[in-house]
Design a protein around this nucleic acid. Sequence first.
RNA 1: GGCCCGUUCGUCUAUCGGUUAGGACACCAGGUUUUCAACCUGGUAAGAGGGGUUCGACUCCCCUACGGGCUGCCA
Length: 468
Amino acid sequence: MSALADRPVVTRFAPSPTGYLHIGGGRTALFNWLYARGRGGKFLLRIEDTDRERSTPEATAAILRGLTWLGLDWDGEVVSQFDRKDRHADVAHAMLTRGTAYKCFSTHEEIAAFRAASDASYAVFRSPWREADPATYPDAPYVIRMKAPRTGATVIEDRVQGRVIIQNETLDDMIVLRSDGTPTYMLAVVVDDHDMGVTHVIRGDDHLNNAGRQQMVYAAMGWEVPVWAHIPLIHGPDGKKLSKRHGATGIEEYQAMGYPAAGMRNYLTRLGWAHGDAEIFTTDKAIAMFDLDGIGRAPARLDFKKLENTCGHHIAMTDDAALLHELDGYLAAAHRPPLDAGQHARLRAAMPAVKERSKTFPELLDNAYFALNARPVLPDEAAARSLDSPGRDLIRALTPRLQSADWNKDALEPILTVFAAEQGVGFGKLAAPIRAALAGRTVTPSVYDMMLVIGQDETIARLTDAAA
RNA sequence: GGCCCGUUCGUCUAUCGGUUAGGACACCAGGUUUUCAACCUGGUAAGAGGGGUUCGACUCCCCUACGGGCUGCCA
């Protein structure tokens, strides 16, 4: 095991800025963040923007927004891989000097011809320049290739996948510096991780094979290999690779759908990782519990029902002020109109009555409908039915009794139950039209909660409206 | 084609040679109730298939099937 494992932990998240922050990327970032934060280490952010064609500043901005929303803060400045291209080229040339790399003058055509001539169309390319005398070098563009060992095996000690052995003969002499002098990913990632002092590389298992190639670069430079942890990718509910047709794949879409960040973190932490029976936990607890040993090896599927359930727990356990603040962020992300000061105050008052029954922010708002909207209350279809004749008569008869009532639950409860008994109806028969009158809905929080939240005057006004 | 990884209830997972294979979500039934949600109780439901090793395999080994990844002058 690498001695880097004993040094203060440094992890990193290194997305390429070619689109929004993918939910899989978000989880990878989360795992790196949890691991670093749980060990007093650092979590670094590097943007892999060496592909100038596909990289955009908008994508970088979207990734930073996504991480910020998820609550994943990084240490230090964001590193641009492209900015480090000179350093990468220097390392490639250092490998040349060390004799662990060589100039290859083979053209695309020659490589294609090599493959065409091989019996297997996937043959590993063997460059004729590997052992060539520099005196024979033509005056032509060249790439720098690794002089990879052709015998023996490269052993990857992975904290998730275990020991993975790759026969060196199956690997080609990969290009580290392109003919235009720019580095390839395989070189840049190693140089950057080394220079940034990364001790633990936690990333998608689509890089597992690459780790073998990258280890050759570490060896070629005499650098210490980091601790590897290749985590399985996230799949769609159907078990297939996550793609657009599964619906939301971008982290920011989840914010716009109204999932609280803490719930999202909790859900994502439990997706492909477990710690005994722990299911619902705070982020602090997650930081304390998280470890590489708890990561599974099979790809996990997204389950929106469980996401919702998890988020429901978090909405219930978050304090009102924080919830209100995050709700404002949701409204903006969803392009919904912001709440005015009055609505804010009313929602705050309604919070205890609604937070335990809401799994998402849109649901919370929906449950708080009675508090947020001023008169006149417009009943929906079902509510209108419960305000038909018997219901309306009950409301009309009840309203005067509330005029002089003390406005607290202990005082109101006997008034309503006694009234229902006098009328010879069950409490439910009375509650239905009250709900309809106060909220315009048939499904609402408790009638007492609503009456107390909107107050005596408003309650009487709404009941009077409905009885008219 | 080659190489690499994976496979426990529908889903997320626990188990790290000996368990009635546990928990959570979802689902079903009952309870509570003022509607819905929540909550409480109970229930249905799993080791891909086949060979080994072993007194004993979900667990270790091999094969097959299925899924995924890599095999680029993309990352």
